[in-house]
Simulated assay, not measured.
Amino acid sequence: RSPKMLAELMAFGNVDGYINMPADQSCLEGKRLSCSSLAVPTTIFQEDAVEPKTGIKFPAFLEDDSCPATTVLVGVGFKGMKIMRVKNLNLYAFGLYMQPNTICEKLGPKYASVPTTNLKDDPDFYNDLLRENLHIRVRLVVNYKGLSIGAVRDVFEKSLGLRLRKINPNTDYHCLKTFASYFTKDIPIPAGTKIDFCQTSDGQLITEIDGRQISAVQSKDLCRAFFDMYIGDSPVSLEAKREVARNVAGLMGRCGG
């Protein structure tokens, strides 16, 4: 079977056959990943997931040319900001996606038999998720209409700088300057804009805005620092981080077949 087919079957929780066949057979003819009618296990989202604070939807599967591996949604959350201690702004919602085959290959042997309750607070597990150069993607969907590309750049630059220093004090900060340089003032990001960040297995961080690639920076340190914001220490959303642990555990529980 092809890696893509195995990824899909593993996400459905049954590599010998589908749990429930969809009524729309056309879903199986090349457009399977876009169909929410397919059966998926309870540890993975049954269909497009809605982030409750913003009402923004995230598809259960993603696949595209820049990151050819089929990825499945393993967690959703949002980034908020308090203004003047009274008003809360929900800046963006996010969905985190991972590739089942590489999860099984690189993390399954160590963690597949570990109870989920033990994983969600295990720093070694999250460190391994960040260390193993897995296919990971985070999709941000802008919720606040006043958000600018410059504000996004400034927030990322500050957070990534701190995390890079923690990960590797001797890192080459040129990678961060290169990354930030692509966030130019002429890129509009109205509410609903999708900003995707994808880590490839060879350590590239690819950025896309509404499906158009704007950058590709080769730096394993930058990749780790970026996803550390979501599944590392002091994450954007602790609840989302724990949801990722539960769903990754669900994927690993199906590694054996």
Rank of each mutant, 00 (worst) to 15 (best):
S159W: 06
K120S: 12
P115K: 15
T193K: 02
I167W: 11
S181Y: 05
F156G: 08
S181V: 05
F156H: 14
L162S: 15
K185P: 11
H135S: 13
F125C: 10
G161A: 03
T184S: 09
L162T: 15
L130W: 08
T193Y: 09
D124G: 09
V155F: 13
R139T: 12
L162E: 15
N133K: 04
D186R: 02
N143D: 11
K158I: 00
F179I: 03
T193C: 00
I187R: 14
N143K: 03
N133I: 05
L164N: 13
K177P: 06
D121F: 00
L147C: 10
D186P: 05
F179E: 10
N168L: 00
F125W: 08
I136N: 15
P115G: 10
E157T: 05
L140Q: 11
I136G: 06
D124H: 06
P115F: 14
N133Y: 00
L130Y: 07
D124R: 02
S159C: 03
R163K: 03
L129T: 10
I167K: 11
E157M: 09
D124Q: 01
F183V: 01
I189L: 01
T193E: 06
N170C: 01
G161N: 13
K145Q: 09
L130V: 01
V142F: 04
Y173M: 05
V114F: 03
H174F: 02
D128T: 07
H135A: 15
K145G: 15
T171Y: 11
D124M: 08
S159A: 14
K194L: 12
D186I: 05
K145W: 04
V142R: 07
K177R: 11
T117V: 14
D121W: 04
D186W: 06
L164V: 04
H135W: 09
L160F: 07
Y182E: 13
V138Q: 13
A151W: 12
S159P: 11
K177H: 13
N127W: 03
R163C: 03
G192L: 03
G161L: 00
E132I: 04
T117F: 14
V114E: 09
R139Y: 11
T117Y: 15
L140A: 14
V155Q: 11
N143H: 06
F183T: 15
S159R: 04
F183H: 07
N133A: 07
V155A: 01
C175F: 06
T116A: 14
K194S: 13
H174E: 12
P115M: 07
P123R: 04
A151S: 14
A180K: 00
S159Q: 10
R163Y: 07
V142H: 02
V155G: 08
D121G: 07
G161P: 08
N118A: 12
P188F: 00
R139W: 09
A180G: 07
S181R: 00
F183S: 01
A151D: 13
K158F: 01
N143F: 04
E157F: 00
I149D: 11
E132L: 03
S148A: 02
P188S: 14
P169C: 07
K120L: 14
N118T: 02
F183M: 09
P190D: 12
T184G: 13
D186V: 08
